[in-house]
Nucleic acid binder design. Structure first.
Length: 873
RNA sequence: GGGAGUAUAGCUCAGCUGGUAGAGUAUCUGCCUUACACGCAGGAGGUCACAGGUUCGAGUCCUGUUGCUCCCACCA
């Protein structure tokens, strides 16, 4: 049915309408029982966390995936795009703690149970919001399979994995140095520590050595000396050769500590002598292990000095530092103080300084798990796009340390380890034991800690498909085909999915890892809350539509590279949407209600039809290859260029001539080419393409279900299409000549063309039309009279443009008079509105700005018209 | 200290396997030719960071230098 389209593209309304339609009609459904295994395509959506709103990074990530999944769906694949949300342990817990604080409450006061209740309520609120926002973007996820990292199935998978790794000796519990955040009161993994340069001091302190000598050490953290259990020197350091093996006296506490030799000490730094605090420094811990040193913890978990710190006990770290410096000065052992800028580890979540400290934690033994994950990438079973990111992945795995998986948080998967209160027996099991297998006691407590968020995230590609059950979905859709994610998440997530999948499934979790960059602001800065430079994607959707947001994120985007998001891009996308919209409007205005344009009759085609079809086939073929190679930015650019420069600027202009006679073939070509453009564009801009599609005569239900690719044979008309380019070339040259010769639109010209090309001679009407000519004649040789003519030359033709008439002044003046009148009227209307206080107060700012802009443009035009009137009178 | 990216029109960036430099925007000239002024036609604007090399031919490949960005490690 032919429908009227409004003059300008307005997305409002169409998005909800079509999204609901697609979903109601079950178009996103993945048939998990489909056994045509070769014909399936699956993507696992990186689950957004439930702490916040959709940001542009998500929007980009999800748009890329939606393009791929829609493309594959149109290519006939059974597709599964499995969505979900992540509980984001530490981040969510921090938010809830902050909210409690507002109410004057603490975690401990309300207790674990109540805390979890609140956390789940939070999930209901915000988890739902982010899903709604993803739908708003147009993402065609398989929503009936939506998952959450802490739902029953995923939780069971987590316990299964933990128990399995534990039973195989790959999970152990031990005292190790961990990164401790005194604010979040939990350990965090190495990857969660950020290092920032900070101005600090390097203090030089004399330690007395037995026998009366002194040895000077340098430190940036003097308070840790309370836990010193040795001094270390480099074995090659001749300055101190005689000191190794002797005993030093720790100032303030007067503890006797050994002097040891260790390669770790750099002779050039400080004095070449290092105090060793195994409990509070990762390197010192290792030195301690090598030399069998005592480990003395002097810090509490909330960042204070503990009872081992003698008189300093109870002081916060910085207070203790101050006091200790004072006391060292008083004792006369503080030799000097230097300023030193050094890197300080901070918690990636709360920004507070990390204190390394020894504590009992759960770890995953990484070496045996890492190797298969390394092999998978080396052997190109898992392929990174762009390839260079595999280096980051490999480098990380080759230097991996054991993974600390326990967190002292409440929000998360509780560690499935249980302790008998009576006999201290530890039981690790998927289900909580009722009685102790050792002493039959029923007093059993579960480990207080929860697991690192990434422990459950590592299972995501298959826990979401029902693992550890052997489901049909797993059989048909696992391993998944593609993972789309940003490069900043490679260590956190990609690596962990890889080794867990290879260990548990004996298969890679995905074949391609498509890495995209970060979305930055117009100045290239990271978008962040503190800078306030974040662009809210929802607002962009509100103002311009999801299609425009999607296009502005994809255009000019190449794999792995960051993109800058700017108003220019939005404008580009909006203008393009409007262009397509109007091209469709034009086609609809020119076809009759009963037009049947399903099939093209090759015999009825004119040369320009064959030309556009050939160009179309070529471009669709290229676009297909681009999408398959993940070059989505290029693919979209090609659709843009073809639609605008080829279809609109040339074919529609050429078609106008034939449309005067309501010729059926040209209508048919217009409709069919437009349809092909819409199909190619659909993965990128799903809503506008569906809206237009539904307005066109068609048999299908939705453009989503159309088959990708062109129905015509690509090379059939190639020779004629090439011929046609010659006509285009001469038209361009003549237009150029007109402009160079300052021939205005109003001035008619006669054109004489010398050419041997039939294609030019036969299509003189097009030249008349597109070059605004009065007449076009052909000559065998260059005309004798070329005085005043402007020449235009191409490879195959030479044209002479004669300006035959000067501008008819009276006619021109009359026209300009009318124009001026109309413009003035329009101007007055705008001015009136803009001086109306009611309007100014109530209308949205965007509307007012638009009016002001329009008014300015009108004023400019009025000035121009007035100038022209002056010119002619 | 190790590694990676990047350097192309005033600005923001494309440019895949080497073959006559592209887009958007800004700018200049003409246009309300009614699908679209969110538009049309035309123009100006680039030693493709620098220096070498391979090649008949290099923005593209190799080596080096410089600037910017990022990642990893680490600084007692």
């Amino acid at each position: 049915m032919r429908k009227e389209l409004s003059k300008q593209y307005t997305p409002h309304g169409m998005e909800q309408k079509w999204y609901k339609f697609w979903q109601d009609e079950g178009m996103f459904l993945a048939d998990e029982n489909n056994s045509h295994a070769k014909n399936t395509y699956s993507i696992v959506m990186p689950p957004p966390n439930i702490t916040g709103k959709l940001h542009l990074g998500h929007a980009l990530d999800d748009t890329l995936q939606d393009i791929l999944i829609r493309f594959k769906r149109m290519n006939g694949y059974e597709t599964l795009w499995l969505p979900g949300t992540d509980h984001a342990a530490i981040a969510t817990e921090a938010k809830i703690v902050a909210k409690l604080k507002e109410e004057g409450l603490t975690k401990k006061e309300i207790g674990r149970e109540e805390f979890l209740k609140r956390a789940f309520a939070w999930k209901e609120d915000f988890g739902g919001q982010i899903i709604a926002q993803i739908k708003r973007l147009g993402c065609s996820c398989s929503w009936e399979h939506e998952r959450f990292t802490m739902d029953d199935g995923c939780s069971a998978a987590v316990r299964h994995l933990f128990v399995d790794l534990f039973n195989r000796g790959l999970i152990y519990r031990g005292e190790r140095i961990v990164n401790w955040c005194p604010y979040c009161k939990t350990s965090i993994s190495d990857a969660e520590v950020d290092y920032v340069p900070k101005a600090g001091n390097l203090w030089y302190i004399n330690y007395k050595v037995e026998g009366g000598q002194f040895i000077t050490i340098a430190t940036t953290r003097p308070e840790t000396m309370l836990g010193d259990t040795a001094i270390a020197l480099n074995p090659k350091d001749e300055r101190y050769a005689d000191l190794v093996g002797k005993t030093a006296i720790l100032p303030l506490l007067n503890r006797k500590i050994p002097i040891v030799a260790d390669e770790y000490v750099e002779m050039e730094f400080g004095t070449g002598a290092v105090k060793i605090t195994p409990a509070h420094d990762p390197n010192d811990f290792e030195v301690g292990q090598r030399h069998n040193l005592e480990i003395i913890k002097v810090m509490t978990e909330d960042g204070r000095i503990n009872e081992n710190g003698a008189k300093y006990a109870g002081l916060a770290i910085l207070e203790a530092r101050k006091q200790i410096i004072e006391d060292l000065k008083a004792e006369g052992v503080l030799v000097k103080t230097e300023e030193l800028e050094h890197n300080v580890g901070i918690c990636y979540r709360c920004g507070n300084v990390i204190e390394p400290l020894v504590s009992k934690q759960w770890f995953v033994k990484m070496k045996p798990l890492a190797q298969p994950a390394i092999d998978a990438v080396v052997q190109k079973k898992i392929k990174f796009v762009p390839e260079r990111f595999s280096k980051i992945y490999l480098h990380w795995l080759e230097n991996i340390k054991d993974w600390c998986i326990s967190r002292q948080l409440w929000w998360g998967h509780r560690i499935p380890a249980y302790y008998c209160e009576q006999c201290s027996q530890m039981i690790v099991s998927e289900e909580a034991p009722k009685v102790c297998p050792n002493c039959r006691s029923t007093k059993i407590l579960q480990d207080e800690d929860t697991l690192d968020t990434w422990f459950s995230a590592a299972l995501w590609p298959f826990s979401t498909m029902g693992w550890p059950q052997q489901t049909n979905m797993l059989k048909n859709f696992f391993p998944t085909n593609t993972l789309v994610t940003a490069y900043d998440i490679i260590f956190f997530w990609v690596v962990r999915m890889a080794f867990v999948s290879l260990d548990q499934m004996k298969e890679i979790p995905f074949e391609y890892v498509y890495i995209h960059g970060l979305v930055r602001d117009a100045q290239g800065r990271k978008m962040s809350k503190s800078l306030g430079n974040g662009v809210d994607p929802l607002q962009v959707i509100e103002q311009n539509g999801a299609d425009v947001l999607r296009m502005s994120l994809i255009i000019g985007n190449s794999p792995g590279n960051d993109i800058r998001f700017s108003d220019d891009k939005i404008l580009l996308a909006r203008n393009f949407a409007n262009k397509i919209w109007n091209a469709a409007r034009f086609v609809l205005m020119n076809i009759s209600d009963t037009e049947e344009c399903e099939e093209l009759n090759p015999k009825a085609l004119q040369i320009e039809d064959k030309w556009i079809i050939t160009r179309l086939c070529k471009v669709v073929k290229e676009i297909t290859a681009n999408i398959e190679a993940f070059e989505l930015g290029i693919a979209l650019q090609k659709i843009y260029d073809f639609s605008w420069d080829v279809f609109c600027d040339w074919y529609i202009e050429l078609a106008k001539l034939r449309l005067k006679n309501h010729e059926a073939t040209v209508c048919c070509v217009l409709v069919n080419v437009l349809k092909e453009i819409l199909k190619a564009l659909h993965p990128f801009m799903p809503f506008i393409t569906e809206e237009i599609w539904q307005a066109l005569p068609h048999k299908g239900k939705s453009i989503m279900l159309e088959t990708w690719g062109i129905h015509f044979k690509a090379d059939e008309f190639k020779a004629e299409a090439d011929e046609f380019e010659k006509l285009i070339a001469i038209i361009k040259a003549i237009r150029n000549a007109r402009a160079q010769g300052k021939v205005t639109e109003g001035q008619k010209v006669n054109i004489c063309i010398v050419t041997a090309e039939e294609v030019i001679k036969e299509n003189a009407d097009f030249i008349t039309q597109l070059c605004k000519a009065k007449s076009v004649v052909f000559a065998k040789a260059e005309p004798e009279d070329t005085d005043g003519a402007i020449a235009a030359t191409t490879d195959s033709a030479r044209a002479f443009v004669y300006v035959t008439e000067s501008v008819d002044k009276d006619k021109e003046l009359a026209k300009l008079g009318l124009q001026l009148e109309a413009l003035n009227k329009e101007y007055l209307v705008l001015q009136e509105r803009l001086s109306n206080p009611g309007f100014l107060n109530k209308a949205p700012k965007a509307v007012i700005d638009n009016y002001i802009e329009q008014k300015e443009k009108l004023a400019e035009r009025i000035v121009n018209v007035k100038a022209n009137i002056k010119k002619y009178s």
